[in-house]
Nucleic acid binder design. Structure first.
Lengths: 257, 257
DNA sequence: ATGGAGGCTCCCGCAGTGGGAGGGTCCACC
DNA sequence: GGTGGACCCTCCCACTGCGGGAGCCTCCAT
């Protein structure tokens, strides 16, 4: 221990962290003091450790978890990239949800018109994939692309199928009505019967809001939803502005005995 | 307890929350079940509670704290606005810090050129205000506006003063050199002496990054910073693109004996 | 009547601190 | 060479918003 050493409080002020934080980072091995007095336990830092401390502070300010910070500090150059990707996704999610909140503030809680319709059974070509809840949008559009590639120019509307349980892993499917087998897809029959249906107008990433309202309606009217949620993509997203995209959301009701 | 009642698991699936969450919200009084069996403790929900449950879910998805959600649910119409404001500030902060991270990814940790300069004492007109850490930017520009209004067209550069300790409440000041008293401002003398100085080029909200680097330099060179951080606003933000804004950051060093 | 799904309470754990108790140390000033 | 006050130490508890699991009870369809 020599001249330049700083006790923890002074060092904390220098790098604008709290004493508690520094002790915690020491415990985790993120930023061990240069010297610890074996008798008193006093921590002493070298001033040039401030740079690392400030990097920690910056990364913390964008909510990078401490273990990732550890990886960055120990020279894992790839770690920063991963951090950035996660940040980006997180920011996007925040913005989406923020938009939903704005919508609620403007229009109040959505209570869209729900109708009960009788749907025929439909023979469809299906493309499936497994997604995590935050990647539903991306995986679904990938499925759409694959289905379009396989089925060519479809006559009917495409219908997305999404499980009601938002499990950590869920299988999404995109279908289109067809009379014959389509290579590269599997075939299936969507059951007919009574469906509760609601029309969502607006961007796809605000569908959950309307879907929730539909589920609430189903509950309030004493029905039990059955099977996956259907999304019928009425508009062409390539030619329709986001605000005008029309999607029918439908959920099968239990058969009236 | 009657027909329409749902046990917790079914209700959870309906409104896409976990059983744990519902129990938690019950404990907090956010969403008490319609009926609790006094013998078994079983919770039973009315289907029309799903709408409230989904509102909770939506608000949680944007990280609104449960107590705030409670206020919204109990009809505090102002609460949603407050929520939105906090969300907005939070998003802005994230974006700022994200930009800082991008910068670091691109350029590496900043290690700008620090020089030691001798500054004369300056007689200045001062406008002060108290800010919270996240409102420093706004409060500072308000001070600038007030100072400009009081001092007219200043000859010298404006200098901002910011305490080094980032306390929850801090006093920021904006000054401009003057030879006579300026009504509507207080007068002060900025001490002369040796300063560590660094030039920050870029948006004002990335100043903390460079400021930290300056502090780190000061520490590494065995100095002790003294007094507030100075920011000398060299560019005119009205006519300079953000990326080219030049600001000198300076911190007084202890007097060499 | 029985089995399995689903419910209950209670306790522990997480991350990343803040707060505080209870006690030892350092240092500047007298 | 004291002494007071600032500073440091280690523990422990609290928070938020849940998830996991133990150990037990209840509901309902067969």
């Amino acid at each position: 221990m020599n001249e330049g050493h700083l006790p923890i409080g002074r060092f904390a002020r220098l790098c604008r962290l709290s004493v508690k934080q520094l002790r915690h980072y020491d415990e985790l091995g993120l930023l061990p003091p240069d010297y610890v007095d074996p008798d008193t336990g006093y921590r002493y830092y070298r001033p040039d450790q401030a740079r690392a401390a400030m990097l920690i502070g910056l990364l913390r300010s964008i909510d990078v978890p401490l273990p990732s910070i550890g990886r960055v500090l120990s020279g894992d150059t790839g770690a920063l990239g991963g951090v950035r990707d996660r940040m980006e996704a997180e920011l996007a999610r925040r913005e989406r949800n923020f938009a939903a909140l704005e919508r609620i503030l403007a229009d109040g809680l959505p209570r869209p018109e729900v109708t009960v319709v009788r749907e025929p059974a439909r023979r469809v070509a299906v493309v499936r994939d497994v997604a995590t809840p935050d990647r539903i949008g991306a995986v679904t559009s990938a499925c759409v692309t694959r289905l379009l590639a396989a089925a060519g120019d479809p006559r009917g509307l495409m219908i997305g199928l999404f499980p009601l349980d938002l499990a950590p892993e869920l299988t999404v499917a995109v279908t289109v009505e067809t009379s014959e087998d389509v290579p590269g897809t599997s075939s299936d029959v969507l059951p007919g019967g009574l469906y509760a249906s609601v029309t969502h107008v607006g961007p796809y990433d605000q569908i959950p809001l309307t879907a929730h309202a539909l589920l609430a309606w189903v509950g309030e009217h004493g029905h039990t939803p059955e099977g996956p949620l259907r999304e019928v993509y009425v508009s062409n997203p390539a030619t329709t502005p986001q605000d005008r995209l029309v999607t029918h959301l439908m959920i099968k009701l239990e058969d009236p005995e």
